[in-house]
Design a protein around this nucleic acid. Sequence first.
DNA 1: TGCGAATATGTCAATATTGACATATAATTG
DNA 2: CAATTATATGTCAATATTGACATATTCGCA
Lengths: 109, 109
Amino acid sequence: MKTSKLESLQAAGWKVGSAEDFLQLSDEEARLVALRLSLISAVKKSRIKRKLSQIDLAQRMKSSQSRIAKIEAGDPSVSLDLIVRALIASGATTRDIQAAFTANERMAG
Amino acid sequence: MKTSKLESLQAAGWKVGSAEDFLQLSDEEARLVALRLSLISAVKKSRIKRKLSQIDLAQRMKSSQSRIAKIEAGDPSVSLDLIVRALIASGATTRDIQAAFTANERMAG
DNA sequence: TGCGAATATGTCAATATTGACATATAATTG
DNA sequence: CAATTATATGTCAATATTGACATATTCGCA
């Protein structure tokens, strides 16, 4: 479990370094990262569900395709603000957003 | 209803300009601002509940008292990231965060 | 009232985030 | 197999956000 979560973070481009470092993440940091992952996952799900390309979504929110790609890749240069804006622009309902938080709660355990 | 919401935004320091401008806010923008307001309210509630001063909370999250004050005042210079970090650092449970989103849904209608 | 603690407001240099762009790499279609 | 479309990656100047600091204001209490 811990391993897969670590791999998620690393795949997402976070400089986690080692497993020890990861385990030393404070609860606060870990919760924030987990929340980001949940929201990111919700963005992609919502975008696909509405059959929007990354360019489509970028235009809706006046951003760029590369930014959308970075959002979905979990790039650390992307803010929570941008993730949430993407989620809203993708057509996600508030219920969808809540669902992401629920998923987050499960992960954060 | 619309008026009180507008007043909230203005009180929070947003350059809304006029009621027309406010009404021209896109749904996306309105939802994002409403979400911010909900989370901000949750931060203050959580901080008070735990009897933390702004300085206490600032130390917990390695920020400064003035930043906490700005968070709670809804200052536009505060990011969603910082608001959520404050919410987590204040001791809010994930359930509290979800509740904030639920309140947001009610507001956004 | 006066005093101390808490909160609010304004500023700014340092840092983080942004859209835009070029370009690379899939994935899809004919 | 191209050709087309979608997605990924790297860069950077412009802009936004940050903690820190000074200082003002408000609040509770003796």
